[in-house]
Amino acid sequence: MLRAVYKWVDERLDVTPIWRDVADHEVPEHVNPAHHFSAFIYCFGGLTFFVVMIQILSGMFLAMYYVPDIINAHASVKYLQTEVAMGTIVRGMHHWGASVAIVMLFLHTLRVFFTGSYKNPREFNWIVGVLIFFMMLGLGFTGYLLPWDNKAYFATKVGIQIAESVPFIGSYLATFLQGGDMVGATTIPRFYALHVFFLPAGLLGLLATHFILIRRQGISGPL
């Protein structure tokens, strides 16, 4: 039955090459922890992606309750955390996941750096990777404000002051981030939009590029 359905779809859409392309590639021995335990360092990239998936899923659930305005933001997070079933766990996953994602990303960067995997012909993918790092930092910065507690508010204020001290473009940058001339009612929706639409869209685009390039170029050889 399943086979028949697959065949029906495949005849029309020719899906076999698409998934075959993902599935059919060889994993060389030197990156396979089953053969060399030390090859676990090659898992960091995959684990980063795994955490990003956790972030996206838990974030989608948080968005069901979160209200991005100065009056309700804090109350909605509090409600989510104290009243909603599993609320603490979902918020916990998103909160700790943010830190774990940065750690994993950092370890992955170190692995690529110290194995010299960024070298010819993979220069471009290295740059894409660094851009992914910036996106993740941006996600961390914008997400920190959203619970709208004192910690969030004052940290963001300091962050924006730092942005403001950039020569020439600083004041524009600060106005853009705040949506005005102070951290307040216009800042939360702005950070929220950046956090759930702009930056994730950029991140997913970069991740897609990252993975397509890996499939094109293959993983770097043994040292």
């Binding site: 804090h74 997070v77 955390q81 709208w148 507690d149 004192n150 910690k151 508010y153 004052f154 307040g184």
Partner: peptide, 15 residues
């Protein structure tokens, strides 16, 4: 980790 440490939430922002 998630179960052990519930995420912190301070008092509402007070400028």
């Amino acid at each position: 980790l998630v179960m052990a440490e519930s995420p912190p939430l301070g008092d509402i922002a007070d400028p």
